[in-house]
Each structure stands twice: as C-alpha cells, then as structure tokens.
Design a protein around this nucleic acid. Structure first.
Lengths: 145, 145
DNA sequence: TTCCTAATTTAGACTTATTCTAAGCACACC
DNA sequence: GGTGTGCTTAGAATAAGTCTAAATTAGGAA
C-alpha cells in the first residue's frame, strides 16, 4: 500500500527519463501526499526537518525538472509565489477568501461546460475555473462565533 | 471624448479618497487605454518615455493604492510577475500558448454557468475562467506558414 | 563488482520583482 | 507665512528564484 506509492513515484520519475535521487523522491513524495499546494519554501522546510536534506537550489531544480516532465503543476494564484501540485487529474481551483487556502476541485463537481459556452470566438484548447468563496472549514469556524 | 476619459479618471481617483497626482493620473490613464495587462515594469517604461516621470517606488505605490481602492486588478498568470488591468467589468481570461498574451474575455462570450454546475459542495461567491489556446493573431500567423 | 560518465547536488553569488526607509515636496488649511 | 498630512523619491533592503563551478552520485557497461 505505502509500498505501492513509493514504487509509483519511482516509476513515474524514471518513466520521464530522470534519475531517481533521494531528493527527487522526497520532493515528489511530499507533493503527492499534500493537497496544500505548497511553495518551494514550504517544501524545503518540510523536507529538511529530517533526512535526506536538499539544498535550496536542488528544490528548485527538482521542481522545475518535475514540472518540465509534466509530473507536477506549477500554479500562481494571488501572489508572486509559485505553488506546486502533483494532482495530474484535470481539476479546477477554489480559493478561500478567509484563510487563503487553495483547494483542488474535481471536474466532476462542475461538469463540462456546454461547448457553445466556452469562449465564443476564441480557439480554446482547455480551460480552468478559479472559484472564490469561503471554504468548509472557515464556514464552520464562522458559525462558531 | 478624450476630455471625458480624462475627467472620468480624475473622478475615479478622487472618489476613492486618493489625491490626484500627475503620476497617479498617468498610471491609471495608461492602464485604461491598454488591454495588454502590463507589468509594473512595462508601465514604468511606457510612462517614463515622456513627462511626467515617476520613480519605481511611485509606480508600485500607485498600483497598490489603486488596487486597494478597487480601481485596478492585479493578476498573476504563469509567472511571478504582477500584471494590472483597469477593466472593472466582470470578465474571464484567455492566454495564448503561442505568444503568451493575456486577453480579457467578456462574460457575454461565455454566459453564466448553470448554478448547479458551479462547484457543487463549495460556497462559491464568484468564479473566473482561464481559457488557453491560440489567439486570433497567432492563428493567422500560423496560416501564413 | 568495479569503473565510468553524464546527470545531479551543492554553497554561495547573482538577478529580478517588490517593499521599505527616511528625507524632501506640495498643496490644503489655518 | 507656518504647519501638517499625504505623496514622491533615491537608494537600501528583502524575497523568490536562477546561475555557476566544483564535488558527488546514479545507473549502465565492462
């Protein structure tokens, strides 16, 4: 089970022609487990609490390599900081205006847009919806007040 | 006509309680005329070709003040650079994968999403669609090859 | 296994976008 | 004319990310 994930990660990295280093494994493993869209800095902080350590340059090299290989996505939301995401399924995003957290929204929660609605007059190859509002956790917190 | 725009800009700035300085006028005027979503740097370069000159710090101060006042929007697309937009009408975005240009897409070109489709299970207050593809200009250019 | 080499990692210098700081201006109000 | 608040400014400071050149290592070949 856990073994499975480990093997999947190894396989994914090798499949795109990258050498599997402990640093790469650690970064991708962390991203696969996280749904928090961490920044390079957060990834670095999380990994470097325990072995194996990766330098800042390696974190960036790794993230760029994984992104170029299509194994992770880099997203920019409301500030000048890159966030990373190993969710390769097509999905939309939800940003909570209270806690600023960024959540993935599976396409099933939205469904496909009727073809005639997608940017009439534009040659659209794909689209992504960014929704804003208050996330479930913050709604609960607000109730409590 | 041109006069109108000038007055509108003056009024907008004063309406939000900001002093109207030549620098602020120049920045907002430039943004209103542009549909290119310029970066702070591009704005600075454009304005400083002629009087009145504005320092880098002022460009940033001004953009932040206008953004905080809701007179311009700051958007982050595929890199760590802020782009600005004085189009206050609700709109979506189109990014050309060839020239990387960012265009506004009026909501009419998409229409409203059926309420039941917008993020089932999320408390969505508003949403924005980012479409990707090839813009009209680049399609033409591609034909020519 | 051992060796080899290209790929990777690293520390630290560098770049770029943006913010901060402290001083000077400018105009509105007395 | 003095005074204060808000604005602009140059330049220093910060933060995210890239680059460089040297040291290390993964993974294939012998």
């Amino acid at each position: 089970m856990t073994r499975d994930i480990r093997l999947q990660i190894e396989e994914r990295v090798r499949a795109v022609g990258l050498k599997l280093t402990p640093q790469r494994f650690a970064v991708l493993d962390f991203l696969v487990r996280s749904c928090e869209h961490p920044t390079a800095d957060q990834i670095s902080a999380a990994l470097n609490r325990r072995f194996p350590r990766a330098s800042r340059a390696t974190i960036y090299n790794t993230l760029n390599a994984l992104r170029d290989a299509g194994l992770v996505h880099e997203v920019y939301m409301d500030d000048a900081v890159a966030r990373f995401d190993a969710n390769l399924d097509e999905h939309h995003h939800f940003v909570c205006r209270v806690c600023d957290r960024l959540e993935d929204v599976p396409v099933e929660a939205v469904g496909e847009l009727p073809a005639h609605q997608i940017g009439r007059g534009y040659k659209v190859e794909n689209y992504q919806i960014v929704m804003r509002g208050v996330c479930a956790a913050c709604q609960k917190r607000q109730m409590a007040d």
